[in-house]
């Protein structure tokens, strides 16, 4: 008894122009159910990040369709699209993009600033998210001065600060030691179980992949399992 929250149909993504084109995705058909946890695995360069960006509506496919809750994403109004990005999705980038010169706190509360949440509420929510990733003592630091693993955790805090219903995490534990990895995994799966959040994770870690309800294996831009 579950509803399909995201599904794709014949998804293709071609990078580049003219002679130097590269087909990163070659026709992806997948369906992800509400409340599911899915691991996307595959070799480096197989197209996992590309797929994640398309699913989270951060990029548009060359051909093919994406359906969010049954609605064709290409038909969404700009306002609806921005609302999805801001309130429904939480995205952890593989390269943990941040405003390097801004404080940790300001980086985490960015989604709340974008949706005009009251200042006091913003700070409170951001602090809570930072506590969840055990970084509350770094709130005043410049993002620039954090270690790789700390940056990754700031990005996770930013992804959960808005109470999203779908979390996309591109290698969320790639830079972490086993102890911190476990903290993050527990955090993500905790949210998944308690709040019935849909979890889509890209990982090279077989252990993390095994924790998910199912795995989607990508090879050279195609789903192979």
């Amino acid at each position: 008894m579950s509803d399909t929250i995201i599904s794709t149909h014949g998804l293709r993504k071609v990078y580049g122009k003219a002679e130097s084109t590269f087909e990163a995705l070659k026709g992806i058909d997948i369906a992800i159910q509400q409340g599911e946890s899915v691991a996307i695995v595959g070799k480096s360069g197989s197209g996992k990040s590309t797929l994640m960006h398309l699913l989270a509506l951060l990029d548009s496919p060359t051909t093919g369709e994406i359906f969010i809750g049954g609605q064709n994403a290409s038909k969404l109004k700009k306002q609806e699209l921005n609302k999805l990005r801001n309130q429904t999705f939480g995205f952890v980038f593989q390269q943990f993009f941040m405003n390097a010169n801004d404080s940790v706190l300001n980086n985490v509360l960015l989604p709340l600033k974008i949706n005009w949440t009251k200042r006091s509420t913003r700070a409170k929510a951001a602090l809570e998210a930072l506590k969840a990733v055990q970084l509350e003592e770094k709130i005043k630091n410049k993002a620039l001065n954090l270690s790789g693993g700390q940056k990754q955790r700031v990005c996770i805090a930013r992804a959960i600060v808005n109470n999203p219903s779908i979390i996309f995490a591109d290698e969320p534990t790639g830079n972490l030691d086993s102890e911190t990895s476990e903290l993050i995994e527990n955090l993500l799966f905790g949210l998944h179980k308690e709040k019935n959040i849909t979890l889509i994770v890209v990982t090279h870690d077989p252990e993390l992949a095994q924790k998910c309800d199912r795995q989607i294996v990508i090879k050279d831009g195609k789903v192979v399992a």
């Binding site: 921005n82 990005r85 801001n86 309130q87 993009f97 405003n99 960015l110 974008i114």
Partner: peptide, 16 residues
């Protein structure tokens, strides 16, 4: 540019 990209990926409208 990157900052703008981040803002937009977090749902900031083009208008804003």
């Amino acid at each position: 540019t990157r900052e703008i990209g981040l803002m937009k990926s977090l749902g900031m409208s083009s208008k804003r």
